[in-house]
Amino acid sequence: MSRELKIVEAINEALFQGMERDERVMVLGEDVGIEGGVFRVTSGLQEKFGKDRCVDTPLTETGILGAAVGLAINGMIPVCEIQFDGFIWPGFDHIINHIARFRTRTRGRITTPVIIRVPFGGGIHALEHHSESMEAVFSHIPGINVVIPSNPHDAKGLLLSALQSPDPTIFLEPKKIYRAIKEDVPEAHYTVDTKKAQVLREGNDVTIISYGAMMRETKLALTEYLKTNELDFELIDLVSLSPIDYETVIKSAEKTGRVLIVNEEPRTCGLAAELAAVIQEKALLSLKAPIERVTGFDVIMPLLKMEDHYIPGPKRIINGLTKVLNF
């Protein structure tokens, strides 16, 4: 059985099912309880599982992420909600210095299977510090998985998969498409491989790699482009931002010889740069054009009036596509 759900609803269902299946799973964060989270992702959880398992915490990301370390070490599986991407930084110490390191430091004795859920990226005309895309900062940290769904089906399956992982996961939630896409999601418990990129369409002319909310923009750009052009493109949803499924990426790059990467982060030292580096290392002789990055700019995310000039839209994506095809 399945029915149509949005990403927010799919994540909510994953949390319900994860908490039902395993009583160690608990949700903590700011306004996750009575309010059900500012995006309503945790709606109904406190009502169903009580205040000890869906916890409104004091307003401190250091507290949420730091306490999660101890909770995890002592047998719980904490799912932390960071209210907006820009608010994660006070707790960053615990991610980089503790959550990602305990397994290594204790030679596998102590693990911290913490899940950190973060509404992620721009495009919803929110306030300052509510719209940044800093995924490369997280992917840069050894010892923690970074995952981002681009649709409701994967949102549920990836989160349920992360809940079963003995390792910590940063689960980025593309807030721009929280409610924009509605699709069939199975009612039953299922998992989606968190380490595997997905080839959404096979093709021979060009490899287009994207993820999260930018996957939707990429598809919009392709629809636009295909109105007046023919193109046998291969489309890859990266899904896992750490570790990256290079096997899928390289195989595709070797086949098409042209690669376009679309994401909304600042360009320098970004995920796209990392992908480009590895693709040229492993598939240089297959390449017919320089790898093209379509990204945000190396600037502070503008306030809402100018936000759309920062975020790559169909126009910038089509420009990048044209460039990589016409080289």
């Binding site: 306004d31 409104d56 004091p58 307003l59």
Partner: peptide
Amino acid sequence: YAISTHRNIQT
């Protein structure tokens, strides 16, 4: 209040 969180949960 901090959004929905009452001051009694804050401290």
